[in-house]
């Protein structure tokens, strides 16, 4: 019996769906405050903000997933990640707990999942009462390819 390796995930809610990002990729979690709009930017980028002296480029996950903007005025949360030396932030509705899974318990992305969702998902974990989609950070930040192709 090989011992299963466990991976920890930072989880977040977007439009009622639970998503997870490997904790090793997450730099920071903070409240979205004073986001500066970047003119002429791709629509997925909601702006830039200052995190302790670093400029973080904030990505609207709802836009990225093709979801409508949120109706309530509650503060969004930002998951800070580093990508190729640059700071990005993923805007999500709210944060969940940190969850631990055995890495061999992952399911492949269901083939019938909507295309733009499937593109940024790395797999699915089964919880008792719901499913958690693992986000593929590289793919999320690769939206320019999609935008340009479109």
């Amino acid at each position: 019996m090989s011992k299963a390796v466990e991976t920890e995930f930072v989880t977040a809610w977007i439009a009622g769906q639970l998503f997870g990002i490997p904790i090793t990729r997450v730099h920071d979690v903070f409240e979205a405050e004073r986001i500066t709009h970047v003119p002429l930017a791709p629509s997925e980028i909601s702006g830039v903000l200052n995190l302790r002296g670093r400029v973080v480029t904030a990505l609207d996950m709802r836009k990225r997933l093709g979801l409508p903007p949120r109706e309530d005025a509650k503060k969004q949360m930002v998951i800070g990640i580093d990508h190729e030396g640059e700071a990005y932030g993923l805007l999500v509705d709210s944060m969940g707990e940190v969850l631990k899974f055995a890495s061999d318990a992952i399911d492949a992305v269901p083939i019938n999942l909507q295309k733009d969702w499937a593109a940024i998902s790395a797999g699915v974990y089964r919880l008792e009462d719901r499913l958690m989609i693992v986000l593929d950070v590289e793919q999320i930040l690769d939206f320019r390819k999609d935008t340009l192709a479109a």
């Binding site: 970047v38 002429l40 930017a41 200052n50 002296g53 480029t57 640059e86 990005y88 939206f143």
Partner: peptide
């Protein structure tokens, strides 16, 4: 401060600052 790679195509912007 330079803008992130995903914003570099915007020619009228030269960077950002705090």
């Amino acid at each position: 401060k330079p803008v992130a790679a995903s914003l570099r195509d915007i020619k009228v912007l030269g960077g950002n600052t705090i």
